[in-house]
Amino acid sequence: MNVTRREFLAISGAVGAGLALSSLGIDLGPAKAYADEVRIDKVKSAKQSTTICPYCGVGCGIICYTDTKAGNIINTEGDPDHPINEGSLCAKGSALYQISSNNPDRLKKVLYRAPGSDKWEEKSWDWALAEIAKRVKKTRDQYFIEKNGKGQEVNRVEAIAHIGSAALDNEECWPVQAMMRALGLVYVEHQARI
């Protein structure tokens, strides 16, 4: 993936690297100090990758700047080469930075809530997936419908339902519906219906 840069558009005679006054030893970084390292330098040395905004259906291009050492995203901004948004972003697109691991409120653990309980318990993936699989099988086997009222073969399950999701990638949408249909589900729906 080659990201060609054309940040400054046609403005020639740009100031170039460094600031005239910085040679005088004056700190021209914003008055609100944010880091020991100057942000612009961190961003310039970051790994760039392109993504598409996860919100509405316009499909704007965004560049993520990833710190090559720490591995986290340190900046996100519009992709100037993208023909739809040409670098621009709305409020949501501009806030993409806060959706990644930078957001301290992201869910980080598998959580389980037992019947009648008033709290979450942290669990492992192995435990949770095994337990969910058991419940799927139990419910499916108990309520499986081989034939309908007319005696026609239907091989379906109405006691389990699935919704979601328009936030998944295509490569996830397909297997999720395939898996649910292979289980026999017919209540398979998502946001497009609402």
């Binding site: 170039g16 612009i40 519009g78």
Partner: peptide, 18 residues
Amino acid sequence: CNDRVGNGMLPACVKACP
């Protein structure tokens, strides 16, 4: 965005404007 402008980048707000 003097730090951006000094490095050949648009001010963040200008760049974002659709």
